[in-house]
């Protein structure tokens, strides 16, 4: 038996359900020597903004129990350089390219970016990063020093943003959600109503580490995003909650380190999954998980991914 391993999310066709999460795989070229990139289901590029962004001051990362903190602050070369230098390399790989975008100024920047990307055939989908915990809507101000909310912390803002972008592009839209909220299903519903074709969750969890010798933050920006296996149970719970509420596909992520972790996300309601932090520890893990899911499906006589998604028995 050969299980059906394809996933269709609107016009996005994935040959397998394993993609790499934004910000954890650079622009893919960094891994070309050690990962068989052609085998990936899809690649989500590091988030880009309209203008180049310097990012947050170092130190930007630290290790924590079963995970890590990061506060990169969306460092990126801006859309112009991305299109000229990074996209041609990504295109050559031959797997669907999902471009993650964010704004430094407001919803208009998302719209402007989406308009530019809409014209480019090799971009398979756009991911709206409205949930980065390390920047605020105010340009360059770390969220720790700013009371401003993220777009994905407010259902009305999420609706307005997705709706505005929807009007300017026919590309598949994926909205990336923040776990730093009381009820994530409200935000997922707002994204769906506004015309998002899928939601991806979860982004990192706002967190903090303190150096007790220096009595200072371990990360320069103070608040940072927690990722890794430490957040996996939270992510699985949120996927399951969202799955009860919405009809559009879910791309599940948060601390997936191996096949068993990935299967949990499918059973909770994911149609596809993304590998993030695990890329840093074992860059080849994507390919191992692709094979592992296939084996699990064969062993359990599961015909297609549709039969695995939301297969949790309650």
């Amino acid at each position: 038996m050969k299980p059906n391993f394809c996933v269709n999310i609107d016009k996005l066709r994935l040959k397998n359900p394993v993609i790499v999460a934004s910000g954890t795989f650079g622009y893919a070229e960094e891994f070309k020597d050690i990962v068989d990139l052609k085998k990936l289901g899809g690649i989500v590029s590091k988030t880009i903004t309209l203008n180049p962004r310097k990012g947050n001051p170092p130190p930007r990362t630290c290790e924590t129990p079963a995970g890590m903190l990061n506060s990169i602050g969306l460092e990126n070369p801006g859309v112009k350089v991305f299109l000229k230098e990074k996209l041609p390399v990504l295109k050559k790989i031959g797997v669907p390219i999902i471009v993650s975008i964010a704004s430094e100024s407001g919803p208009e920047e998302f719209v402007s970016l989406a308009k530019q990307l809409d014209k480019i055939a090799c971009i398979a989908a756009i991911e709206l990063n409205i949930s980065c915990p390390n920047v605020s809507r105010l340009a360059g101000v770390p969220v720790s020093r700013c009371a401003d909310k993220l777009i994905s912390q407010d259902a009305d803002s999420t609706y307005a943003l997705v709706n505005a972008v929807r009007k300017v592009t026919k590309k598949t839209l994926i909205t990336k959600l923040s776990p730093n909220i009381t009820d994530i299903t409200e935000i997922a519903s707002a994204a769906q109503t506004a015309g998002s074709n899928a939601v991806s969750l979860i982004n990192t969890i706002a967190a903090m580490s303190i150096d007790i010798e220096k009595k200072s933050f371990k990360i320069a920006s103070g608040v940072a995003g927690l990722s890794g296996p430490a957040i996996k149970p939270i992510a699985v719970r949120m996927v399951w909650e969202v799955y009860q509420k919405i009809k559009i596909p879910i791309i599940g992520m948060g601390g997936i380190m191996n096949t068993a972790d990935a299967i949990e996300f499918f059973l909770a309601g994911s149609s596809a999954i993304a590998i993030g932090t695990a890329n840093f520890i074992n860059p080849g893990i994507n390919v191992e998980i692709i094979d592992g899911i296939k084996k699990y499906m064969i062993k359990n006589k599961i015909k297609g991914l549709k039969n695995l998604t939301g297969g949790l028995i309650i």
């Binding site: 910000g23 954890t24 795989f25 650079g26 960094e30 891994f31 050690i34 590091k46 310097k54 990012g55 001051p57 170092p58 130190p59 930007r60 990362t61 630290c62 290790e63 890590m68 990061n70 990169i72 460092e75 932090t277 890329n279 840093f280 860059p283």
Partner: peptide, 26 residues
């Protein structure tokens, strides 16, 4: 610097230089 990926992807290990942030690993 504290490093994660080591191959230049995560942008975690940057240091400030006269030409902007540079990755210690790359």
């Amino acid at each position: 610097e504290h490093m994660c990926c080591g191959v230049g992807a995560c942008l975690g290990c940057v240091i400030e230089t006269k030409q902007g942030y540079k990755r210690v690993c790359k």
